[in-house]
Each structure stands twice: as C-alpha cells, then as structure tokens.
C-alpha cells in the first residue's frame, strides 16, 4: 500500500485553535470531577464538615476552655485555621489520588490518554476539580466554625492564595499517588504515614515556637507548618514566622510537585504500558 495520495483538504476539528480545544478539555475534566464529587457527596462533603465541627467543640470549647488563651487569642480561634487547612489538604489529596486510581481501574482514563489532551490541561483540570471539592467541603465548615469562634478574615488576598496554593500542592501530590498506585490499598499509604503525622505535628494544635529543641528546629522541615502559619495569619493575624518566607517555601514545593507530575504524565508513567 502506498503512503502518499492526493486529495482535497477537508475541514476538521483539528483545525480548531489548540488553545480553545485545550480550554474545553480542561473544563471537561473539572466538570467530570465535579459530577463525581456531587454524586458521592456523602463521602466528599459531609465528613469534613462533621470532623471540623467535632474538633472545634471538643478541643476548642471543652478542652480549650481549660487551656485558656494562646498567642493572644482563644484556643478555639487558634486551632480553627489549622483545622480548615486540614480539610484543604486531605480533600485535595484524596480527590486526585482516588479519582485517578478509580479511572485507571475501570480504564475510563484510557479515553483521556488517547485523546489530544495536553498534560498541562490534565493537571489544571484535576486541580480545578480539587478546588471545587475544597470549596464544597471547606466553605460550609469555614462559615460554621468562623461564626462559632467569632473569626473575621483579616487578609483576604493571603487567605485566598494560601487556600489555592495548598490545594494545588496536595492536588499534585494526590495526582502522583494516583499515577503510582496500582492497587486501591496503595492509596491510603501517603495519607496514613505522611499526611496525618505531618498535620498533627504541623502546629495546628500548638504553637511550635514553644517546643523544646530539637523539635522546634525539626518542625520547620514540615511544610504544613508554613501552610498553617500563613493561613492563621490571614485569618486571625497571628504568626510565628516571616510570611514571605513561608509563601516562598510553599510555592516552591508546589512548583516542584507540579514539575514532577508534568514529567510523569509526559512519560506516561502509570498510564501507558
């Protein structure tokens, strides 16, 4: 059979501008994720609201009443920013890790892999999906506990940026976990052995500057410390670290994970044989 032949050019979707095609694809991924999040709302939206409410009541109101103030605010006010950040961290991570794993399991991801969707489009689409999940789970809880503790957001720009950058960081981490996992039991590994310990030692419940050495120094190697500290500053104006430096650390880690996910996607890691 010959390779060349003559024919008249025909109009085809591929002549559609690359950018507008990728925007549609990105929107589609975000929409697909949103549909899934809404479909399983009992798993995606309700638990974080219940958890943050229980933590606020038990630790903030009951135990916090005995502890008194910390860094010039009530204990309840002190822990709430960290609790909200925990929602952002867990929901972003879990969304991508489980979504990618499920789509790999039922092979529906093949339809995206064989489609002309750019790797950046895929990453941004899944990130947007995480933002939707964080908003759905986080907005209701935030309004509830901010009202409970009488918190007014102090720095809106910082507040929004911290949520988005944290969401991005853990969405990329979850994405990498989803690519790497070949079985469902490989999904909880990172949350159980890495995220939960880092969150607990991330200064959500205590002021890390009051820790004895070497724990205080070690704590600054925990990225969640920077996230919680920045977010706490944006909400109640309390900080233990230079905010610019915290932002640089968090943004740098996010960029690193972004690059890693992009490279993994380009090589087809976990998706192509």
């Amino acid at each position: 059979m010959s390779t060349k032949e003559t024919t008249t050019p025909i109009a085809h979707p591929s002549t559609q501008s690359f950018l507008s095609h990728q925007m549609t694809a990105c929107y589609t991924i975000a929409y697909k994720e949103s549909v899934r999040i809404v479909r399983i709302w009992k798993m995606t939206v309700v638990p974080p609201i219940v958890t943050v409410f229980l933590f606020s009541v038990v630790f903030g109101q009951i135990i916090g009443g005995k502890i008194g103030g910390i860094s010039g605010v009530s204990y309840l006010q002190f822990i709430i920013p960290g609790l909200i950040m925990n929602i952002v961290i867990n929901e972003s991570f879990n969304n991508n890790a489980s979504s990618i794993m499920i789509d790999k399991y039922n092979k529906s991801i093949e339809s995206m892999v064989t489609a002309p969707v750019h790797e950046l489009t895929i990453l941004f689409g899944y990130f947007a999906g995480c933002v939707v999940r964080v908003l759905m789970a986080g907005a209701i809880s935030s309004v509830l506990v901010f009202w409970l503790a009488g918190i007014m957001v102090q720095h809106w720009f910082l507040f929004t940026y911290t949520i988005l950058i944290t969401c991005a960081l853990f969405s990329f981490l979850g994405f990498i976990n989803g690519l790497y996992a070949t079985r469902f039991d490989e999904i909880p590994t990172i949350p159980t052995f890495i995220l939960t310990p880092l969150s607990f030692f991330g200064g959500v419940f205590y002021d890390i500057t009051t820790l004895p050495e070497p724990w205080r120094t070690i704590s600054w190697y925990n990225p969640i410390v920077y996230i919680v500290d920045t977010f706490r500053y944006s909400t109640i104006g309390v900080t233990h670290h230079d905010i610019t430096e915290s932002l640089i650390v968090v943004t740098a880690i996010t960029s690193g994970l972004f690059l890693l996910s992009y490279c993994l996607l380009r090589t087809g890691y976990g998706l192509k044989n």
């Binding site: 979707p13 549609t24 589609t28 039922n106 339809s111």
Partner: peptide, 22 residues
C-alpha cells in the same frame, strides 16, 4: 469496556467530546 459505570450515558459522551474540544 472502559467506562466509569456510575456515569450517566449522556455524561460519558459529553466528557469524551470535551476531550476533543467538542
């Protein structure tokens, strides 16, 4: 077969079309 079995039929088509910019 490579569908997410929980997706609606219309969504399966819309998601797929979206990947091709439709």
């Amino acid at each position: 077969i490579n569908f997410n079995l929980f997706s609606k039929i219309s969504d399966v088509l819309i998601f797929h079309g979206g990947y091709y910019g439709i």
